[in-house]
């Protein structure tokens, strides 16, 4: 025996106590005349009763309720204290992420700005900003430093040659031979020019 299809949902709504008064009276009249729908209502009523019976006893024991209340209020107090020191420091607790993001962005800009602009007396400079002439000069300086030992040796040699030459020219200039004296004088002048 099957319940009437058009009444099935109405029967459920009646069991859930959600039926409007006019529909309820219509259902009552129908149930009085239809044993199948009466049976369906009775079956579903039993299923819902069984569901209620199967639900766990939900009584919160007094100590458990008290402990819960204490725990919640304590957590709120701790939260309130944290909120308090944040406010004293001027840090809003409502929107911490925008504040953090803004701070991060400011730091980023500061670092970027420091790298981008030379703040007057900063000794920091990069190769990128050197002119070609400066680069050539630097390269020459580097070559001098690299061959400094050799240059120092050459300088010593030069001085030695000058000392030896001076003695030789002095000697030649003091000779009786005018031809030799003239050649020595001419040679000394060239050395001075060099």
């Amino acid at each position: 025996m099957k319940a009437c299809a058009e009444y099935q949902e109405i029967i459920w709504m009646d069991l859930y106590e959600e039926l409007k008064p006019d529909l309820r009276s219509r259902l009552r009249r129908h149930l009085a005349a239809c044993p199948a729908c009466r049976l369906e209502r009775s079956r579903m009523g039993r299923v819902l009763d069984a569901a209620r019976e199967g639900a766990p006893e939900a009584e919160l024991a007094s100590p458990a309720a008290e402990a819960m209340t204490r725990s919640i209020t304590q957590a709120l107090r701790e939260n309130g204290n944290r909120h308090g020191w944040r406010q004293r420091l001027g840090i809003g607790s409502k929107m911490p992420f925008p504040a953090l993001a803004a701070t991060g962005l400011a730091l980023l800009l500061l670092v970027w700005g420091g790298m981008r602009f030379d703040f007057g007396g900063s000794p920091v400079s990069t190769d990128i900003r050197l002119s070609r002439t400066e680069q050539t000069l630097l390269q020459e300086d580097y070559e001098v430093i690299r061959h400094l030992d050799l240059l120092e040796e050459m300088d010593t040699m030069e001085k030695l040659v000058q000392v030896v030459d001076k003695r030789e020219y002095d000697y030649l200039e003091e000779t009786e031979d005018p031809h030799r004296r003239g050649a020595a004088r001419e040679y000394r002048m060239k050395r001075i020019e060099v």
Binding site: P56, L60, A65, M68, T69, T73
Partner: peptide, 20 residues
């Protein structure tokens, strides 16, 4: 803070029943 405590006491039984 006392208001939170009153609200907890008022609603905890029903809330616990739903959670259970």
């Amino acid at each position: 803070g006392w208001a939170a405590e009153v609200l907890v006491r008022r609603h905890q039984d029903k809330a616990y029943a739903i959670a259970l």
